[in-house]
Amino acid sequence: MQTVNQILRRVPVWAVYLLGLIPAPWLFYQGLTGGLGIDPIEALEHRYGELALQLLIVVLAVSPLRRFSGLNLTKFRRALGVLTFVYVSLHLLVWLVLDVQLPSQIWADILKRPYITVGMAGFLLLLPLAVTSNNLSVRRLGPRWRVLQRLVYPAAILGGLHYVMLAKGFQIEPLIYLSVILGLLALRLPLSNPLSRFRQVDSA
């Protein structure tokens, strides 16, 4: 794993941004040229949202991968987080501009459709993370910046729930996404060591 980490240290962060942004215009082009099927707007909205969830899962996996396998992707975590927000925003923009279009209908859908309410709540939680994803904010906020980053946890759960609620009928794929998200978050829970309790009893 040390060899892999040494190779990753040589990879510039801008390369992650470049590779991560390639699908955005390509999918839009496919939508314009009929490559996304008979309902390109719905397909484009779905693809952007799915890419956002996939990137969010990678972000959540950075710490567990380093802890359990030694693979260090910490250098790219902020870039992956920014890319996540980009695709969440594209997912939202397709819905706002190409799908619904009418402002009155947008607010009605947010208030009346639970899966849209959940998705919008997740987006709002990601918004302050995107705004503060720069070195100036890190310096100004200090330790509070790390506390603020924890908003990604409830945002990820809401994103997974949004996908499950959006699915028509029983579909296994959204449940897999939500399960992976919950599993990665569970790995962050502090696990108590039973031996330490016995030591405390013995020393009492």
Rank of each mutant, 00 (worst) to 15 (best):
N134P: 04
P128C: 11
L148A: 12
L136A: 14
R150V: 01
P143C: 13
L126A: 12
R146N: 15
L151C: 06
L126V: 12
R144E: 06
R139Y: 06
R140G: 12
F123P: 13
V138L: 12
Y153K: 09
A156C: 10
P128M: 11
N134S: 10
R139P: 02
L126E: 07
L161P: 11
Y153V: 09
G159A: 13
Y153N: 07
S133H: 04
N134I: 07
L129S: 10
L127N: 06
V152E: 01
R139K: 13
V138I: 14
A155P: 02
R146T: 14
L161Y: 05
V138T: 08
S133P: 00
L125A: 08
N134T: 10
R140H: 14
L158M: 11
I157A: 12
N135L: 15
A130R: 15
V131P: 08
A130G: 12
L126S: 11
G142L: 01
L161D: 04
L148T: 03
L126M: 13
V152Q: 04
L124N: 09
R144N: 08
V138D: 04
L129C: 10
A155I: 02
R144Q: 10
V138Y: 07
L161G: 09
P128Q: 12
G122V: 05
G159P: 05
L136I: 15
P154T: 06
G159D: 01
S133L: 04
L126C: 13
A155R: 03
